[in-house]
Design a protein around this nucleic acid. Structure first.
Lengths: 111, 111
DNA sequence: CGCATATTCAACCAAATGGTTGACCAAACC
DNA sequence: GGTTTGGTCAACCATTTGGTTGAATATGCG
């Protein structure tokens, strides 16, 4: 009875991971660069990236010694469809989204 | 840096809780009736309902000795907006949603 | 009152989560 | 070849999660 919605929603439930997704929305990034703004260890970020990858929310491709992370927004579609079934939400509202991104982007004292 | 998206997505990450939400989509229900199709204890369902309530996804109102659970789909709006920022998903697709519901409704051998 | 019904509380447990550190491996550079 | 750089692995730890059971608290009923 568990399906990929489990993994996707669980992946989205962590603020660090949501911030990473928002960062990748702008451009593909190397693992080290993803980790840079956070105050936790590289290994911790590496684990988060594994979780995002297993949820299908990002893909990782190794070129040379650098592993590039790429957003895979399609993985959100099933979850989005599921949620939309509960109400007639307004169509894509990029203004509201920008405000969310501002509250989610990492800062110097981000956990 | 944690906000209600944490709680909402975490609440949605459990298949039992998503099933409960789908059940409440049809009608308000008493706690005992919510628990009936599941094979776990009433106390376990009670805990799930607390989590859903804290996430704002349902509300509970006690009338007499019965506590009624009501879906609060508005709590999904912020999460939906967040997700939609990652891609131009198709508008509400009720057919797809019906299929999801079918895979999520509890059965006799549901965990 | 006395009992049944509806629901939560408390204590407990196993497993999962999110983090750490240090060792390790692979690719690139001088 | 030796060292730096990029990233993961392994072991460990504290906390949270999702479940259990049994006792407790209301409320309603005869």
């Amino acid at each position: 009875m568990s399906n990929d919605l489990d993994t996707v929603f669980a992946a989205l439930a962590d603020p660090t991971r949501r911030t990473i997704l928002a960062m990748l929305l702008e451009d593909d990034m190397a693992v080290t660069d993803v980790a840079e703004p956070f105050e936790m260890s590289l290994a911790a970020i590496s684990k988060h990236l594994v979780i995002l990858t297993k949820a299908g929310l990002i893909s990782q491709e190794k070129r040379g010694r650098v592993k590039w992370c790429k957003l895979e927004p399609d993985a959100l579609r099933a979850a989005s469809v599921w949620m939309q079934g509960f109400g007639q939400f307004e169509p894509v509202n990029l203004d509201a989204f920008e405000r969310f991104l501002e509250t989610e982007l990492p800062t110097a004292d981000d956990a």
